[in-house]
Design a protein around this nucleic acid. Sequence first.
DNA 1: GTCTTGAGGCTAACAT
DNA 2: ATGTTAGCATCAAGAC
Length: 371
Amino acid sequence: MAKQTPMMQQYLEIKAQYEDAFLFFRLGDFYELFFEDAKKAAHELEITLTSRGGTHDRIPMCGVPYHSVDQYIQQLIEKGYKIAICEQVEDPKEAKGVVKREVVKLITPGTVMEANLLNDKENNYLATVADFEDGSFGFGRTDLSTGESAVTLIEGDLNDVIYELASISAKEVVVSEAFASKYEDTLEQQLNLTVSVEEERELPESMEGLCSELEQSKLIETMAPLFHYLIKTQKRSLDHLQKVTYYSRNEYLKIDYHSKRNLELTETIREKKKQGSLYSILDKTETSMGARLLKKWLEQPLVDRKKITERHSVVQSLLDNFFIREELKDKLKEVYDLERLAGKVAYGNVNARELVMLRRSLHQAPSIRIM
DNA sequence: GTCTTGAGGCTAACAT
DNA sequence: ATGTTAGCATCAAGAC
């Protein structure tokens, strides 16, 4: 390969660390992509592929201005790609030679934090699968935007794993290299999700507290790679993550994929539209948190009689008490997405408008609690 | 409405 | 040797 300019050397060094992601390389007012990234991105995003350099050996390039980068990120995330955002980390006026640059965050389908890329009414799950020597699987999930995590064991085959991944609509799954080489194609094609590899299997010290309620070592081993992946990709505070909860797959009714589709619980069969689904008819929720909970209830019906009765009696008491119900509705209208707001605060990318939303929401909390 | 320009880094090519 | 300039993705603001 021909000798590169200083900036291209810098680019290649950084790119080598993020082989599996599009590297958005900040250059002045633009994020630029080079080489194969440029060719692929130009094709996916339908933008012009150009080049830079001299008259010979020009380097393929495409780019977008910083103020409209979000829409392009969104397109790539929706297609399941990962993106590394590389910023200029010193003042160009002070810099001698090329300005220092660093990857400041990795955006992947399962770790998106930007509100405009997330659907309010749906969780955005990053899953993880561990395969144990006895043939069983560990299955875990985290929604980075709300901070919730849950884990279970699967005594079954790969189809049961696929069922679990499909039932939470996981966007991305963290697995070992060995697992990926065996099943990556199946997972990507059947479930349309992004597969990420993480080898580290020891639980990070900073995450021990989150796993304090897990009693079996298999459960902790399942979650460890997922937490490593989060630390590696996010480069930020993960303080808003809540304790990992254990659930048994027997708590919920198993509905096979085809039945679920035919019941049109959350989307219609032919158009995959929400409108017309059972969920869209039942959804009278006032908050995003409520909408996500309702969806969970529909997709994972309870089987334990006692729990079902409990849930019914709560619903019944609200049905019977018109005034309390209406008052509660009014108060909840003032409540914004607390789960995700908390995440943004811990994460350090909260803005003023969102802080005002947080204040209004918390203001309602005491009176709601009394009811 | 349509056309032109500049936004900010970096570099190749041309000018002194 | 050192200095100046043209170009280069898209988008929004300004000119017409």
